[in-house]
Design a protein around this nucleic acid. Sequence first.
DNA 1: TACAACTGAATGAACATTCACTCAAACTAA
DNA 2: TTAGTTTGAGTGAATGTTCATTCAGTTGTA
Lengths: 187, 187
Amino acid sequence: MDKRRNILEATSDLIAGQGLQNCPMSMIAKHAGCGAGTIYRYFETKEDLVLALFTELSNDMAESCLQGYDESSCIKQRFFTFWGNFYRFMHETPRNQTLIEQLSACPAISQELRDQAMDKVIHAGNKLMDDGKAQLLIKNMPNEILKTMTFGSLMMISKKQHMMPDMFPEPVSEQDLLTMCWDAVKA
Amino acid sequence: MDKRRNILEATSDLIAGQGLQNCPMSMIAKHAGCGAGTIYRYFETKEDLVLALFTELSNDMAESCLQGYDESSCIKQRFFTFWGNFYRFMHETPRNQTLIEQLSACPAISQELRDQAMDKVIHAGNKLMDDGKAQLLIKNMPNEILKTMTFGSLMMISKKQHMMPDMFPEPVSEQDLLTMCWDAVKA
DNA sequence: TACAACTGAATGAACATTCACTCAAACTAA
DNA sequence: TTAGTTTGAGTGAATGTTCATTCAGTTGTA
């Protein structure tokens, strides 16, 4: 009986399925099983709704990334756990992948909010990189570069697998992907 | 006096500046210095206009990537030339970066057209990867993975530098970025 | 009854597209 | 040459559509 939940779920499904442009409030209402006006009892505007969705998704991602992440493990182990979690979050639930993609291109979401949300995910990543550099296991480069390159390659590979599965006839090994990322950043 | 040219240029500027959503035909017409109706003498629909822009941009990118690319050089040299060209195309002309970003999220551009356009760019990349694997210099993995990961990381890093310059107080060395990519794919 | 939650038709704004019109250049016939 | 005629690029107000948002009315519940 949680209408707010229904509305957020419906919005997720529709944005992931049709794209942000092609999901009018009327359609969201229909999928959520309520009238269009009801949405406005829970969200002031459509922009508000999209923002709430983005915030929720970011939190989910942050939580996923830190599952089983143990800061007392060795650097390589931490790297594989953290980015493996991230990759699976995108890859096992393609809806997440598409949502992040769509919402990232949405002008309603300010760069500030985007950073703030992403920072939750990548904050632990900063410490990981710093520790790795201190142990001379990771290239001595700005964290922003190390993180962005890893993030970008995993994001793109999961996107492409999702959008063009034909191009990957044999399943792609997560280990192999993470090893490529590790090779890129390791000293 | 080339109206078509003017219209394409105006569209590029506006999409890069305001985003695809925020550039109505009326605004494009104004910037191109013509009436709204005139655009329809050159492009059947707005979608058509956007498609033409995307095709043109893809061709530019393909041409850029192959500048000074010599297939008789060694693998590492070819890798650095090819992907260095790609990175500079994005990085030196942020408009290109933003345009690719905006147009990639546009549902009007079919996955098919996108691949076709991208393939022009990355076709030479396939041979590069195959040659590299034959010489045991590059990891024995599907080309699609090797290319997508490299493409993704360079794309993301140039995007982030463009959108959030504050996060990169010191200039980022192109050599360092390419070395990271090379380390990721090398055997 | 009162009150909150809910509904979906109605409203108005934004926008792609159309089309009746303008006018300068090209062409023709004298 | 020149007056008359045709052509078609160019124009922008008008049209029709798509939506976000509102609100008068309905339903369910205490």
